[in-house]
Amino acid sequence: MPRDLTSLHTDLPVWAAPMAGGAGSPDLVEAAARAGGLGFLAGGYRTPADLAAQITRVRANGAVFGVNLFTPNPVPVAPDAYRTYARVLQREADRFHLILPAGNVTEDDDAWEEKVALLLRTPVPLVSFTFGLPHSDTVRALQNVGSLVAQTVTTPAEALAAAETGADLLIVQAAAAGGHSATLTPSRPLAPTPLPDLVSDVRHSVPLPVIAAGGIATPADTAAALRAGADAVMVGTVLLRTHESGASAPHKAALADPAYTDTTLTRAFTGRPARALRNRFTDTYEQAAPLGYPAVHHLTSPLRKAATAANDTELIHLWAGTGYRQARDEPAAKTLTRLAAGR
């Protein structure tokens, strides 16, 4: 069975990160492969049938690719806090004639078993996990059908735990990353360790290949991560405005809008820490938002979808890493090859 990165046959040390919710489109995955790198289909929030269709499409086009899944690691929400937050948000929902699910706490596992079964039936080159650690039996089963297995980690301690599951490689994510943090302990503050330092710390703790992620936006960022010991880097935010990105039009526009001047870590949208452009929603509701994933995600989802349809960027989860100003309206291959120029 394959046990190292050479089996992936990638030439470009800059990969496209999985971006759940639509931004990580099959077009983007295929563009990354054509550029000599690798992209990930984001299994999170997608039905098993939809994910299967995307796998079939990308495989048919000959791309080297991975699939990312959210490993169940629930943070149960306090019922009283959930109901209070729902009441607070209802005034925003009223503008769109929505009734938020205040009495319906959804604590699902994102069809975990079905998606793992899909990947065992139709193996892909690389499977990565985020939010939690899969059981070692799951890791071994995927390896037995020919998949490399990667675990996303945010600390050396998490890297050690990932190695114990039998993972083949580590995706090391710094707090500068856009979107959800992969932290295994979302109730604890994220350490603001610079990515090169985090890569070095992990490499000194665990003898596994490392893919560095989080805040990479320039060729110099790529070079620093590779010097620190990363085998490749993975980028997401800088690809959001590319031609192949599936990000919404309001999201793409906000990334270039000078009115948005900063990012912030917030749990207001999903009950789990994630980095986004600071907007009215994050400023108004961060303190009121309870920890609670996936319950808070399901609570706010109708509101976020309605705001996106209305082009109201003050209520949208504008996921963005700290290097968001480097995102350009251009082909994804141009972004990826530019970032690789600093190696």
Rank of each mutant, 00 (worst) to 15 (best):
A310Y: 10
A341M: 04
D80R: 15
E158V: 10
D283L: 13
V238A: 10
D312A: 02
R325E: 13
L303C: 06
L133A: 06
R280H: 15
F96D: 00
F269Q: 03
L69H: 00
G271N: 03
L315E: 12
P125C: 07
H243L: 14
A259Q: 14
N68C: 02
M19R: 12
N104D: 02
L98S: 00
A117R: 13
T185Y: 10
T242H: 08
E113F: 12
R280W: 11
P13C: 09
F96I: 05
L160S: 15
H317P: 06
A177M: 09
M234T: 14
L118W: 11
A53L: 11
G342R: 05
A223R: 05
G103K: 06
T322S: 10
I99L: 03
E107I: 01
F269N: 02
T71N: 14
Y260P: 09
T261A: 07
G37P: 08
V77A: 04
L100K: 00
T165H: 14
A274N: 05
G44A: 14
E92S: 00
V77F: 01
A274D: 03
A310S: 13
I55R: 05
V233R: 08
P196A: 07
A141N: 00
L318C: 11
R83V: 11
S136G: 07
V145A: 05
T152F: 01
E314A: 14
S7H: 14
P101N: 11
N104K: 00
P192R: 11
H243N: 15
S128V: 01
R343H: 08
D221I: 04
P13T: 10
A223H: 07
N279R: 08
E92A: 01
L198K: 02
P186Y: 04
A177T: 08
D168N: 15
R338T: 13
T335L: 01
